[in-house]
Amino acid sequence: MRLQVPLAIILIMGLFTIVTSFIPARPIADLNQTFRNWYIGIITFFIFLGTINLVRVNGEKIKTKASDWQYSIILITALAVMLIAGFYKGRASTDEESVFMYLYFNVQFPLEATMYSLLAFFVTSASFRAFRARNKEALCLLLAAVVIMLGRVPVGTAIWKGFPEVTEWIMSYPNAAAKRGIRLGIDLGLISMALRMILGIERSYMQ
């Protein structure tokens, strides 16, 4: 029951999805659509589970007074504020002029955007300290990077009119070739891993 039934479910659902992808006839296609709707329904609960887990982990931190536990109070308060703002007026809670939206645009938005913008500083520092042409391959990488950087900003065109065209050619052919090679390799890996899981050979996800 604990092992065989789940293995049967993944086998049946996996094979059914693959085989019936080639059958557009209505009853089968409708059934497929229903299964996919169930899938979406189930994964919705993943996020709710994540929210509950977040409360649990931070609640535990507060209870045991683990390091930085004070910040966990802030986290849970922020979560509660957002939930209240999002539900207290029913569906209208997320209307355009709602508190929920003000919180999104003036708290969540700046925090997220700023957090990722920190990387501009770190990438510059890393360019100075770590981007070294130690061998021919690294020199090739460095040259490609410099040409493409110049080809993608207007000042590059001001330096030499040919930069955008050269950049476009590099992006369309050598770059696309390597990306395609990597992608084809990933595809083969994905297919073999998917089949191993469907056939029950790979079971580590059940641990």
């Binding site: 100075f128 300290r129 070294r132 410099v146 950087m149 110049l150 900003v153 000042v155």
Partner: peptide, 20 residues
């Protein structure tokens, strides 16, 4: 934003070259 991009790109290329 493209003007800021232009100057920042030149700066970063400068840093890369200086580092090398």
């Amino acid at each position: 934003g493209m003007d800021s991009q232009s100057i920042s790109h030149l700066l970063i290329i400068g840093f890369v070259l200086l580092g090398n």
